[in-house]
Design a protein around this nucleic acid. Structure first.
Lengths: 178, 178
DNA sequence: TACCTTTAGTTAGCATACTAATGAATCGCC
DNA sequence: GGCGATTCATTAGTATGCTAACTAAAGGTA
């Protein structure tokens, strides 16, 4: 009889999975040295990037929790990163005026200036990284990755009821760093 | 006037790049809990996996440095991971009999047993993760990622001379964990 | 043989990441 | 209005990862 389709584990799946992991490792090895040129780490860039974008949307201050949500990172991690960035003079932590429990973070002038400077070089780096693919291939890759990402988010949050509303501005997305 | 094609930075590149970072974050969020079911971490799985594969190629012991090369991790990191795994009874560290400087690591029976057990569940997990794509799409994704990976490796190691030999068994690849 | 350079592994110190537990403050529902 | 449940941030403790510096052992060459 002809071999059935649907084998025990599809060798393709295994190698595809490994290629994802491998690619990420390579990207990190390229980006970390870039960030250290500016005296920051990938995580700190993540914070700068989120705060800069928030400002451009009219939000000059974000709660620590919101920052964590946007970076897909737990509260204790945010506390530490912000501690160090405050020490570096890149961000300022202040009390919320509506909720005594929470604190808000905002860019200092120095932080904003650095964020803009890093952003420029960052764009050039991502260009260089993706230069291995043609624009058309990049688009196709993006489509496949997004499809996979949506699948995984669905897997991760089979949250409340059959129909999950989910209105927040931050689509639980991205780990902006790197 | 009509907006020019070829904008300053190709929006596609930016979103594609972000989709890579995001996907990796999602995968980590899915895999880490899986490993902790077995009482290990992703890095420890990386070590088990490399040692298991080495055994299957006839190598029952690897030097710490070789382990680091295969995992794309620096020596001090390996020292720490192996310390903890030794304490867990998963691997054994012993002296090399050809070089007094180096030490070799091998799986203990318990480590081998665990590695095999994790490997099974791991395959199932990767299947579930990639189930968001059809086999054909997976293949296409794999092709694109490999192409990008080769591009990055070329970027990272413009090593010696115009023509770099590079014969080693481990193609500088993968960060086997996760 | 003697000395200088390179290699293997470890230690020290820093930056992240996580979970669990704490203390404050706010919400929500009776 | 009030009290239990939830939320926000932090602390404590563990696991990685890295760079820099150090020890010990090999190698290579004068």
């Amino acid at each position: 009889m002809p071999t059935k389709r649907v084998p025990r584990a599809s060798a393709t799946t295994e190698v595809t999975y490994r290629s994802i992991i491998r690619l990420f490792g390579l990207i990190r090895h390229i980006m970390e040295p870039f960030f250290s040129q500016f005296g920051i780490t990938g995580s700190q860039w993540g914070v700068l990037q989120v705060l800069l974008r928030a400002e451009e949307e009219g939000l000059t201050r974000l709660r620590l929790t919101d920052l964590g949500d946007r970076l897909l990172v737990q509260p204790p991690s945010i506390t530490g990163v912000i501690d160090r960035m405050e020490r570096l003079g890149l961000v300022a932590r202040s009390a919320s005026d509506t909720d005594l429990r929470s604190k808000v973070v905002s860019l200092t002038p120095a932080g904003r200036e650095l964020a803009l400077r890093v952003r420029k070089g960052h764009a050039a780096r991502t260009q260089a990284i993706l230069a291995g693919l043609s624009p058309k291939e990049q688009e196709h890759l993006h489509q496949l990755l997004d499809q996979l990402g949506s699948h995984l988010e669905a897997t991760l949050e089979p949250k409340d009821g059959p129909v999950a509303p989910r209105v927040g501005t931050a689509p639980s997305s991205a780990r902006s760093e790197v």
